[in-house]
Amino acid sequence: MQGDSGTAGADTEIEHLADLDAVLSSGRALTGLRLQDLDLTAYEARLLARTDVEGLVVLGGRLSPALNAHLGAHHALVFPSDPHAPVDPYRATLYTAAELYAGLETDGYESTPDYRAYQWMRDGAVHRDAFVTLLRAIHDDSISDALDEFTGQRPVVGVMGGHALARGTSGYAAAARLGHALASAGLVVATGGGPGAMEAANLGALAAEPGALDDALRRLAAVPTFRPSVAAWVSLALEVRAGLPVSADRCSLGIPTWFYGHEPPNVFCDGIGKYFSNAVREDGLLARASAGLVVLEGAAGTVQEIFQAVTPLFYAPLESTLAPLVLVGQEYWSETVPVWGAVQALGQERGMGSVVHLVDSAEEAAVIILDRPDGATAAGGLR
């Protein structure tokens, strides 16, 4: 969980049992520590022997009633979870595709944590359950903290685009090759984590070899979209991912939301930061795009993301070094969904005018992102 300057910080957060063991062995007071999502079963005797726990906060995890009572008696705080929650509100790491789609092959998509989390969110809203609302907010803050740890100081490029782009199309292949080029240059490729253009960019970023990417594109075309069957769409993707050569030097990140429950997350990510709040998710995704943002064709959600990205560019101090915003598809963004005129008009009055671009191809977008004057490394272009 995130701390502030006056309370908890990185030095008080304990997210791994090895760190807890080190603290207990050191004799350090436990006052003020935050224990997040830990199974305390093996440490119960040692914790029961300690009374220096005032202000200790236990966020979820596993502990016995006896330890719970002991900590409470000595003024520690133990935050409970909801036994009916399909996800852990206090989790300390990003999701994996295997976690979100657990049970898919045997019991169908409706049995998976991903689907059940969406239903849990909807049920809590309908019944105005304040406790569920609180747990969702804690969950999303935990995901934000995990995203900070996952990305660290690595440069992140965002790739936005519509969920309707089908596998097997030239647009899908172009988005995949864009993701491949950006990741090959050492950038973390972050998308909205859903289907379509997002899946394509995550696939390309994950695939370490161009030939393997071509093979994956060919195989995935057999199930073009997640409609009518999410299970068929996911199952094929999991098969393709299992045979995909990957590299520790590459990073593919998805940041989806249960707000769009009809959009299942794609599986081609090293980490999945899935949120209940779409507003928190979009702000976090765009704020992390330190190396720039590429926007492929999309509908209302993509348009919203464009202007959400434009706002901080517009109001940035004139001396700021700004990351590029690149819209791909001149006819689309000028005529079909005429966003470019507004972006260009805003840019004429501020420093952002030099970093907003409208291009025709993913290849051109890659060149702009990778040939920045502030030192980004070119990837040698797209095939």
Results as ranks from 00 to 15, higher is better:
L213T: 04
L182H: 08
V230G: 00
L382D: 01
R91M: 01
V267D: 08
D82F: 01
L94C: 08
G292E: 06
P324E: 08
A190L: 11
R167M: 04
E349C: 11
H262A: 11
A379G: 15
L327R: 12
G298W: 03
S277K: 04
V267T: 14
V356W: 02
G161F: 06
Y315W: 07
A221P: 00
G158V: 05
P224T: 06
Y332P: 07
A176H: 09
S361E: 03
W233R: 05
A316W: 06
G204C: 10
A183Q: 04
A242H: 14
R218A: 14
A190D: 00
Y43Q: 14
V246Y: 07
L178P: 01
G152S: 14
V303L: 10
F131K: 13
G55K: 09
A22R: 14
L296P: 06
R116V: 06
V326D: 03
L94V: 02
R28K: 10
A18P: 03
L313F: 11
L296E: 03
T169R: 13
P80H: 10
W333C: 08
G152N: 11
S235F: 05
S142I: 00
D107G: 01
A146C: 08
H75D: 15
D107I: 00
P264W: 01
L253C: 05
L33S: 07
E331C: 10
A29I: 02
D249F: 04
N266W: 06
G204R: 06
I143G: 02
R62C: 02
R128Y: 10
D52P: 13
H16W: 07
Q36C: 12
A8L: 12
T151G: 07
A237M: 10
T51C: 13
L244I: 08
A291H: 04
L59M: 12
G162Q: 02
Y332S: 12
P224C: 12
P317R: 15
S144W: 00
Y260V: 07
G271T: 03
L104E: 07
L35H: 06
A342E: 12
R250W: 00
Y315K: 00
P245L: 13
A201T: 05
L17C: 08
S235H: 10
T12L: 14
R136W: 02
A125D: 13
G381P: 09
T7G: 13
V356S: 05
G196L: 04
R62I: 03
G32C: 12
L382S: 02
L40G: 11
H357M: 05
F131N: 11
V159N: 03
P228T: 10
D374L: 11
A76G: 14
G186S: 08
L47W: 09
L30G: 12
G301C: 09
E44M: 09
V246P: 04
M198H: 01
H70Y: 04
P317K: 14
A185G: 12
A166C: 08
V188F: 06
A102R: 15
R350G: 03
E15S: 14
A185S: 15
A76Q: 11
E105W: 04
D371K: 15
E44R: 09
V359F: 03
D145I: 00
T96L: 07
V223H: 05
A18S: 14
G341Y: 06
